[in-house]
């Protein structure tokens, strides 16, 4: 029998030490996804736990951040995505498709997709599965703004002057705000130059991200601002004196959220299964609960009573529920951000 030399032993040990992390990772099969980075990740984590139960050794890591930042990271990594999949809104999907970093989900592998309300399917642009939707309304400080606006155009009333904040258009929320300002005054969504000019009239305080804008509202630096309904719901649940107005004209405005997978992921089958779990009645009911009150995409889910303050609830509201004409707006995100800087920071 051949004896093991010290050199051979050391070489083998070093090789094993170097290879160990990748071997363990391969066995453990960790899925990395871009989420919200906040309490809104709870339904995702719950679905991750269910996936892990079905497939021992599988785990889910949810990383927070803007979708645009994830797309830039994948581009910088020359397409070798550090993430497997993400929750993404319609505009980010359009940008990601332009950069070629997404791979279509195969709907035949997501049985529960048949239960999804047909109105949400187009917002995925054939790339992903709609799992929820968020409302865009006006969050306001009840002490500073006793009478909140009812329509978007109301923001231009003198009573709100000097109290308004808005998010930069690099985020989906900020991008929507530019289009909303155009639509509120009878222009098409895509007339973003007009939308920016209208915002300029308001001399708003600008939050670099929706999160920072929300902090400005919480600190009383602004009295009201366009914000996601789920962020407002979480802030209200923590005891802050905030309210939320489901404004119209256009609206109530919503943004569907999809599960999408990045190119070159090694876990495509698990991602499809994860999306399917999120579309089960149990997952949808969980997501609809306070404090986030996610809008559900599966037919027949009854929203809790508290959700009526944030999401379209009456038949009229549900019928007039709209989103922005994203294919005409999202591809120009870079140009809109630059135009915003020329107007506000130039």
């Amino acid at each position: 029998m051949k004896t093991l030399s010290r050199r051979l032993f050391l070489g083998a040990a070093t090789g094993a030490a170097i290879a160990a992390p990748s071997v363990l990772r391969a066995q453990a099969r960790e899925l990395v996804m871009i989420g919200y980075g906040s309490a809104q990740d709870d339904p995702l984590k719950r679905a991750g736990a269910e996936l892990a139960k079905r497939h021992p050794g599988v785990s889910l890591r949810v990383i927070g951040g803007l979708s645009a930042e994830a797309i830039a990271q994948i581009k910088a990594a020359r397409g070798a995505s550090p993430y497997d999949f993400a929750v993404m809104g319609s505009p980010a999907i359009i940008n990601a498709v332009d950069e070629g970093v997404l791979e279509k989900l195969d709907m035949a592998k997501i049985p529960n997709i048949k239960n999804v309300d047909e109105r949400f399917i187009p917002y995925a642009y054939g790339m992903g599965a709609p799992i929820s939707y968020a409302g865009i309304g006006i969050a306001y400080n009840k002490q500073m703004v006793p009478n909140p606006p009812k329509t978007w155009a109301d923001l231009w009333k003198p009573e709100y002057a000097g109290k308004i904040g808005v998010s930069r258009p690099q985020s989906n929320l900020g991008l929507a705000c530019v289009s909303i300002a155009a639509a509120a005054f009878g222009k098409p969504d895509s007339d973003t130059d007009f939308g920016l000019a209208k915002w300029k009239e308001l001399k708003p305080l600008v939050g670099r991200t929706p999160g920072l804008l929300q902090q400005m509202l919480e600190r009383g630096e602004i009295g009201l601002c366009p914000l996601w309904h789920d962020n407002t719901g979480i802030a209200v649940a923590s005891g802050l004196p905030l309210g939320y107005a489901k404004v119209t004209g256009p609206g109530p405005l919503i943004l569907p959220t999809m599960i999408v997978q990045f190119t070159r992921t090694a876990h495509s089958a698990l991602i499809h299964e994860f999306a399917d779990i999120l579309l089960t009645t149990e997952s949808q009911n969980f997501a609809a609960q306070p404090p986030y009150y996610f809008g559900t995409t599966v037919k027949g889910i009854v929203a809790p009573a508290g959700a009526a303050a944030y999401l379209p609830s009456t038949p009229e509201e549900v019928a007039s529920m709209v989103s922005v004409d994203w294919p005409k707006v999202a591809p120009n995100r870079g140009k809109i951000v630059e135009a915003f800087d020329r107007m506000f920071a130039g």
Binding site: I71, K75, R208, G334
Partner: peptide
């Protein structure tokens, strides 16, 4: 500048970040 300047405060470093990350114009 990101945290204390507000969203309409633009300096050279934040400009680079936006051009690379949001406009994707390397």
């Amino acid at each position: 500048p990101q945290l204390l300047g507000g969203g309409n405060y633009l300096n050279a470093a934040t400009m680079i970040y936006e051009q690379v990350v949001y406009s994707l114009e390397w």
